[in-house]
Amino acid sequence: MRITCPHCGARDAQEFTYLGAADPQRPDGMAATEAAMFDYVYLRENPAGPHRELWYHGAGCHAWLVVTRDTRTHAISAVEPAKNRKAGAAA
């Protein structure tokens, strides 16, 4: 696979490390519940189809990226820096 890093261009996926689903949001703060944290840490949609997921460009710019990739075909439709995501969600 190749991932087009927004900073570095198209690079072999071997330069990246995969983490998992990008959409679960960590329940921050002292008010967060164990149940919500359990959900965040352990439960996954695991879809067969488009999947927003986190990749880390460890052999490049060290950016965490949200990659939208189809798990049936591996086709990638979008790549964006993860740090933009929360800003976008908050806006």
């Binding site: 986190l54 950016a63 965490w64 740090k83 800003a87």
Partner: peptide, 12 residues
Amino acid sequence: QHLEFCHQVLWP
């Protein structure tokens, strides 16, 4: 990698 995750993904 973990620290970068915490910063960029959790608390940008």
